[in-house]
């Protein structure tokens, strides 16, 4: 592991961060949804919200935000729901995913293949 595990995480901290909510409409965000800030943090804002807004001045994935914040993915999704609901971020959802057991179009996968070959 690159960093210390969250195994010793204080549950109270997670409770506080999310205001006691344990579930968000998580389906809104994939782990690789890219988040972009639409505004700067303002005084009085919850610190995690402010940190996300600073991090996402350029696009950044949900899973990277989770790693940088040292918070589980599901907790980050709850925080992102707050910011999305208030228009402070926008979300770029993945298109090239396998949905309903079907792979993306061959043209998309061809692009992936060529890009990897050209690395």
């Amino acid at each position: 592991m690159i960093r210390g595990a969250l195994d010793n995480e204080d549950p109270d901290r997670l409770y506080t961060v999310t205001g006691g909510r344990s579930r968000a409409d998580e389906s809104v965000f994939d782990m690789v949804t890219l988040i972009v800030s639409e505004c700067e943090p303002v005084p009085g804002m919850q610190s995690e919200h402010a940190r996300i807004l600073r991090m996402c001045r350029g696009p950044l994935s949900v899973v990277e935000i989770s790693s940088y914040l040292d918070l589980p993915v599901s907790v980050v999704k709850i925080l992102l729901c707050d910011l999305l609901d208030t228009g402070r971020i926008t979300a770029r959802h993945p298109h090239a995913a396998r949905t309903g057991g079907r792979l993306p179009e061959p043209e998309t996968l061809k692009k992936v293949l060529v890009a990897l070959q050209n690395l």
Binding site: M31, L34, R54, M55, P59, Y68, R92, P94, H95, A96
Partner: peptide
């Protein structure tokens, strides 16, 4: 610093694959 993301993505990045 939270703004110091290690290696920022391109501004045009829009489609995450796994």
């Amino acid at each position: 610093s939270d703004s110091a993301v290690d290696a920022p993505l391109r501004e045009s990045a829009s489609d995450g694959l796994k």
